[in-house]
């Protein structure tokens, strides 16, 4: 059932993330839930993978492993060839900060920070000097069309605007690897399309790899590759795009 996705013609350096035989078991009382049951996966620069699957199939669990915010019960995750199991908590945080962009269904912005400051935050973690920060944040704010909302806090923004802030926050570090868990789950169709359109153009123009988990069929239209997850196992639905 499992497939290893390879893309001939690209060398190993272009592999952004690789997972081998990922398993995740949750122990709840006497019961063990096998959320992932041996998953192999790989994504490269320029990939746009959409992962479909019913609720409870293990999508979030899988994405959390790829995003290095949770540990597999067994199996390995490599980010740019680096086995993350060997990294300390601090090094993992640096890896997430520098190499991975995360987008959540519930936006997860800092309520006390403005649009500008939310997007700027990862650069502060990286100790980027102020003039560069200003330039990069301003450019990205303009790119996602939030120029007029720069000073507003999240509670003064619409859902679509919030997700654009979150997307900008994920991309401000110039990462080439973005993970999105149901990014359109709280948005209407029009807004969803706009968000996906931004992702698509970043994918095409900047070679950013996107792994998007969703059960929204519309999102599939943006995929270069669609994968199905069911009962903790992956299967390819379409290849190329």
């Amino acid at each position: 059932m499992t497939n290893e996705q390879t893309n001939p013609g690209k060398d190993a350096a272009s592999v952004v993330v690789a997972a081998t035989q990922l398993r995740k078991h949750y122990q709840t009382g006497a019961e063990t839930v096998e959320a992932l049951r041996g998953v192999d996966f790989r994504a490269e620069r320029g990939d746009f993978v959409v992962i479909h699957g019913p609720s409870g199939s293990g999508k979030t669990t899988f994405l959390n492993m790829l995003g290095c915010i949770d540990y597999p019960t067994s199996g390995a995750v490599e980010i740019y060839g680096q086995d993350v199991a060997t990294l300390s908590d601090g090094k993992l945080a640096e890896l997430r900060r520098d190499k991975i962009g995360l987008v959540f269904q519930t936006f997860n912005l800092m309520p006390v920070l403005s649009t500008y400051e939310n997007i700027e935050y990862p650069l502060l973690l990286q100790n980027v000097p102020r003039p560069q920060r200003r330039e990069r944040v301003q450019k990205l704010i303009d790119a996602v069309g939030l120029t007029n909302e720069a000073g507003r806090r999240p509670n003064k923004l619409s859902g679509g605007q919030r997700q654009r802030v979150a997307l900008a926050r994920a991309l401000i570090t110039e990462t080439h690897f973005v993970l999105a868990d149901e990014p359109t789950g709280n948005l209407d169709t029009e807004t969803s399309k706009r968000i996906m359109g931004i992702m698509k153009s970043l994918n095409e123009n900047r070679d950013v790899a996107f792994v998007v988990v969703t059960h929204d069929p519309m999102v599939g239209e943006f995929a270069r590759r669609t994968v199905e997850i069911r009962d903790g196992l992956l299967s390819t639905v379409t290849q190329g795009g």
Binding site: A93, E94, L95, R97, L102, F104, N108, Y121, L125
Partner: peptide, 16 residues
């Protein structure tokens, strides 16, 4: 707590 989770997920270290 959830904000802490978000901060940590996007790369904030524990001591921060």
């Amino acid at each position: 707590t959830r904000e802490v989770g978000t901060l940590r997920a996007i790369g904030t270290k524990r001591h921060h």
